[in-house]
Nucleic acid binder design. Structure first.
Length: 1006
RNA sequence: GCCCCGGUGGUGGAAUUGGUAGACACGCAGGACUUAAAAUCCUGUGUCUUCGCGGACGUACGGGUUCAAGUCCCGUCUGGGGUACCA
């Protein structure tokens, strides 16, 4: 029997589905192991070979852990809300639900072919009302919560109301409780609170809720008609679609993720994630320590009652004596008041321009220094000197206080600004050359700084903060770059936000009113008034028939921020998941996905996890203990090179053919393609090549000349050839299948080829996989040609999981051959080697029950040992070569013994599940290999009787010496010294030193 | 600019703790089987040198530490990713 992978794979996939082989047990006494893949967005293009890379790795771990005695949870689902389906809906009118479902069914078919061990009974889809009911429910919990700084966790908003009812609110005193909200909330007493009407109370509480409606500058994308979160904007354009993004002041639903900034930062230390990924999150959170500091505004009587101060945040309060100006962001609230009459026109002009610039424009000329003087001054808090107030767009409105104290001598940006506008530099720290550049190192002695003089930076920092606090000018402070996340999207295909408005006050729905189903609309576009698409819903779509629902929907990251919990209890109708089950499954043990989610999804899912823990719904602080980013698989494009030549007639014949005939002639002229290595000959204009081309074209020339009666018809060849992307399916090992090529496209039917060594060799380039480049390789094609087991092995064999690499089928025959070789071990005649041929052309299953030899046991056990080590450190490529070595050795030993092959099948079954199931069954096993127990390796079989010592002189290997393993270090040295080869090498001299590392190496120093 | 990760044969890559560099696979060359092809099997394959035995060199480059360096340290070059007026 041949290795018929098609039949085997179909049979076993059907068997697993029928027997629910991979269903996870919610009530098991075994230890649990939770392996999660980042679920895909089901796009219309289907899967290419890059998608399954991570799934294959996680599948290997899942199957392996099960055989190691774990109760394994390995689910899969779809992140099925999102922009592409909606953009498609806008173009075609097709409901996104329909396209999404179609795409999902394509994905499912493709996934099934690869033989994954997913527990499909737990499938989730974020767009399913039974799922988003709980996304909405979590939103409501977020709305009904505030972050208590003193207990350092989220609590019910009721506990804050209780505080207001008994003590009122004073931002200065309550700072430790509520954090920095003083800007927005004026102090009030308990009595005042009680007297406030509902609207006022609602407005105040909005400043504390974790999900809140707030006015802020947001990333507005006009083409997509929606706002975007910071992580959805890259280089000033939207991540999806690449449309320009502007900054716009808008009222928006937001998430107070900033309340969790410190916990998100601290939690990273507990995680087994890659350093680079943790570093990205640290940068994104951007903690910086410093101080706030108030500068009194000089000579502005109108301002005395309003804000007499400009408050800045600085990480370098120690340089305060070096302040030579203060800069405000163009959006700063005091800009208008501070602008004097003389400067009004120029400031207004500057501010308008700065505000209207898109993110992209702003980023494009980051190096261009712009700014204007307001005409006003502040007083230096320590020297009392007058300091000018400037406006500059290098100061960002959204960070710190939107104002900086500029110390040009010790800050690079202030330095460039000062140089550009000719403002003074005041050196306050020794050690740099401020004539040349800013000295921003945090070391050196303080000078020109009054009471700080002579101190080192560190000491000065301490002293100045104490002084600032003592004088009531500000206080030591920690700032984060992280911003609250905008949560509303002005789009259709997302979770409706479960909020309605009554008397202009937002209210959340009751639990029993969930889910708030996404309503039908006539069009998926914004309304004429610029309202989101949900405003198009029928007029009956109102809460209690009266009150408008919120028209924004949730962002794409909402559903994915808690899906790992839903898998634990996917069909629960009364809770997002049973507490007992979340307690049982706890954290994800292994999470696999792309690194592009570093500062988006992976931050949000950590945030929601911490929040749900604070409220007592779950017991874990972090969603995933271990995380691996699989690399990207790039496309490998093949090119053919078409010669550029002109054909034509000369003299009186030229130009006397009509258009129709010219076209006919053109059709008869072939396309000529030149093989890659011969391009150089073309460039060098080599005579031989020209002759070859003319010979090739001669029959065409003759034919055309005869047919159209042209005496002077000829071809002239240019030195350049045009590279054309060719379908990788008609290229094998870069060799073009020329016949297939002629049939590939109509215009290539008439083609000729300049070959090398009788073959046409294509050019190669690594590019992103895309349809237009004809370099998309689907897993389906590989499964069809070589089978799923080969695909699985090959994707793992390609290189380390985390590394990005181009797809390249050149080596696929190697792993496929390995599987055939494995198969042959079971169908091998021990006498003859190779497949024993029977009368009907089929080899017989042939397995022996003999006792294995010592060598065979050693082969098996060293394989077990290595494979376990490799899986545990996620080094899948090396374990495959281990399997290859094992099968090569067993083939050489003509080993067909059950005692060896049976355990080997178990080891291999997580990698190549179909072929191993089949052979396992043929060995007479009744139950699936999935439930077999992974073999333990026995050290005893690995011990060698002898050691092959490499003997080197001065670290350079000279020869090797086989010695009994029992010899001690001294005995080894003695053996080496009396060896003849040693004598020859030393030529009678004595080595200065002999180093013997037991069972490793011998090195002589001469 | 800053941060992180890399650079090893013709190619993908291996070398887990400093201990025989190039495992495994592809490709290539030669051979066996075959009428032929496919499939399969065998042998060789880092570079230079030598008829051969052997010798020299070799992990981007330049130094260093060590009995011993792909691996550790310093500097340079180079590729990739992240991030960017964050005060």
């Amino acid at each position: 029997m041949e290795y018929n992978f098609k039949e085997i794979e179909q049979n076993w996939q059907a068997y697993w589905a029928k027997h629910k082989t991979f269903a996870a047990d919610n009530h098991s006494t075994k230890p649990k192991y939770y392996v999660l893949d980042m679920f895909p967005y089901p796009s219309g293009a289907g899967l290419h070979v890059g998608h399954p890379l991570g799934y294959i790795a996680s599948d290997i771990v899942s199957r392996y852990k099960r055989q190691k005695g774990f109760n394994v949870l390995h689910p899969m689902g779809y992140d099925s809300f999102g922009l592409p389906a909606e953009q498609y809906a806008i173009q075609t009118g097709q409901h996104p639900k329909i396209t999404t479902e179609q795409n999902i069914s394509v994905y499912r078919k493709q996934l099934d072919k690869i033989g994954f061990s997913f527990d499909w009974d737990r499938e989730v889809r974020t767009s399913d009302p039974e799922y988003y009911k709980w996304t909405q429910w979590i939103f409501i919990q977020l709305f009904n919560s505030w972050y208590n700084k003193s207990t350092n966790k989220a609590e019910s908003i009721d506990s804050l109301i209780a505080v207001f009812e008994t003590k009122g609110f004073n931002c200065k005193l309550d700072d430790t409780l509520t954090g920095d909200v003083e800007k927005d909330v004026a102090p009030f007493t308990a009595e005042e609170w009680k007297s406030f009407d509902e609207k006022k109370k609602s407005d105040i509480l909005m400043n504390f809720r974790i999900a809140y409606l707030g006015e802020a500058y947001v990333n507005w994308c006009p083409q997509l008609g929606t706002v975007l979160a910071n992580d959805e904007v890259k280089d000033g354009v939207s991540e999806r679609g690449g449309y320009p993004v502007e900054r716009k002041l808008m009222k928006q639903w937001s998430m107070r993720i900033t309340a969790y900034a410190q916990r998100l930062l601290d939690g990273l230390d507990t995680l087994d994630w890659t350093e680079s990924l943790k570093e990205s999150q640290r940068n994104w959170i951007g903690r910086s320590e410093g101080s706030s500091l108030k500068f009194k505004i000089a000579g502005h009587p109108e301002l005395v009652s309003a804000s007499q101060f400009i408050e800045v945040f600085t990480t370098r309060p120690d340089t305060v004596f070096g302040v030579s100006f203060v800069t405000l962001a163009p959006e700063h609230e005091l800009v208008e008041l501070l602008t004097t009459a003389d400067n009004k026109a120029i400031v207004e002009d500057y501010v308008t321009k700065a505000k209207n610039r898109s993110e992209r424009e702003r980023q494009a000329d980051v190096t261009k220094i712009t700014g204007v003087f307001t005409g006003s001054y502040v007083e230096h808090p320590f020297t009392g000197k007058q300091i000018p107030i400037w406006i500059g767009d290098y100061v960002l409105a959204g960070y710190g206080t939107g104002a900086v104290m500029a110390v040009p001598a010790h800050d690079t940006r202030d330095y460039s600004f000062a140089k550009h506008f000719n403002l003074p530099l005041l050196e306050v720290i020794e050690g740099g050359d401020i004539e040349k550049e800013a000295y921003d190192a945090k070391e050196g002695k303080l000078v020109n700084s009054d009471f700080l003089n002579g101190l080192e930076v560190k000491a000065a920092m301490k002293k100045i903060i104490a002084e600032i606090e003592a004088r009531g000018l500000g206080k030591g402070k920690i700032n984060y770059r992280l911003r609250d996340a905008v949560f509303g999207r002005q789009r259709y295909w997302g979770e409706p936000i479960p909020v309605y408005y009554k008397n202009d006050i937002p209210y959340v729905l009751n639990d029993n009113e969930l889910p708030l189903i996404l309503p039908e609309v006539d069009k998926y576009l914004p309304t004429e008034d610029g309202e989101p698409p949900l405003a198009r819903a029928a007029s009956s779509w109102k809460h209690e028939g009266k009150y408008d629902y919120e028209h924004s929907t949730m962002p794409g990251w909402a559903g994915s921020s808690w899906y790992f919990l839903r898998y634990m209890d996917a069909h629960n109708g009364s809770a997002f998941a049973d507490k007992k089950l979340t307690d049982y499954w706890q954290q994800v043990d292994l999470y696999l996905g792309g690194s592009e989610h570093a500062t988006g999804h992976l931050l949000y899912v950590r945030f929601w996890t911490k929040f749900l823990k604070d409220l007592g719904y779950i017991n874990i602080e972090e969603p995933a203990k271990k995380l691996i980013n699989q690399g990207m698989i790039q496309g490998r494009s093949n090119f053919v090179y078409r010669l550029n030549f002109t054909s034509g007639q000369v003299g009186e014949e030229a130009g006397n053919k009509n258009k129709e005939e010219t076209e006919q002639i053109h059709k008869m002229v072939p396309s000529v393609f030149i093989s890659k290595s011969r391009l150089k000959e073309l460039e060098n204009d080599e005579v031989d090549l020209h002759k070859e081309i003319q010979t090739l074209l001669e029959p065409y020339r003759v034919k055309i000349s005869e047919k159209f009666n042209l005496k002077t018809f000829s071809f002239s060849i240019s030195k350049m050839a045009v590279p054309i992307n060719v379908d990788i399916n008609i290229v094998d090992n870069d060799v073009l299948d020329v016949e297939a090529f002629k049939n590939w496209r109509e215009d290539f039917k008439n083609s000729e080829f300049i070959l090398e060594d009788g073959k046409y060799i294509c050019g190669v380039e690594i590019e992103k996989m895309s349809k237009s480049k004809y370099n998309v390789q689907t897993p389906d094609d590989i499964c069809e040609k070589f089978g799923a087991d080969t695909l699985r092995l090959y994707e793992m064999f390609l290189g380390p999981l985390e590394q990005s690499k181009p797809w390249n089928t050149n080596g696929i025959t190697g792993v496929h051959g390995f599987l055939k070789k494995l198969w042959r071990l079971f169908y091998m005649s021990p006498s003859g080697g190779g497949v024993r041929q029977l009368a009907d052309g089929e080899a017989a299953f042939n397995i022996s029950n003999d006792e294995p030899t010592k060598a065979e046991l050693k082969t098996l056990h060293k394989t077990i040992k290595k494979v376990v080590e490799d899986i545990e450190r996620f080094s899948f490529n090396t374990s495959i070569s281990t399997f290859m070595i094992c099968v090569n050795e067993l083939t050489d030993a003509k080993c067909n013994k059950k005692a060896i092959l049976e355990p080997l099948l178990i080891c291999l079954s997580s990698y190549a599940p179909h072929i191993t199931e089949e052979l396992w069954k043929q060995l007479g096993n009744k139950e699936s290999i999935v439930y077999a127990t992974f073999p333990e390796y026995n050290e005893a079989y690995l011990v060698d009787d002898s050691v092959n010592y490499p003997v080197s002189v001065n670290g350079k290997l000279k020869f090797t010496l086989e010695l009994p393993a029992t010899l001690t270090v001294q005995e080894v040295e003695a053996e080496v010294m009396k060896n003849e080869q040693t004598h020859k090498l030393l030529d009678g001299k004595q080595p200065k030193k002999v180093i013997v590392v037991h069972k490793k190496i011998v090195n002589m120093v001469v």
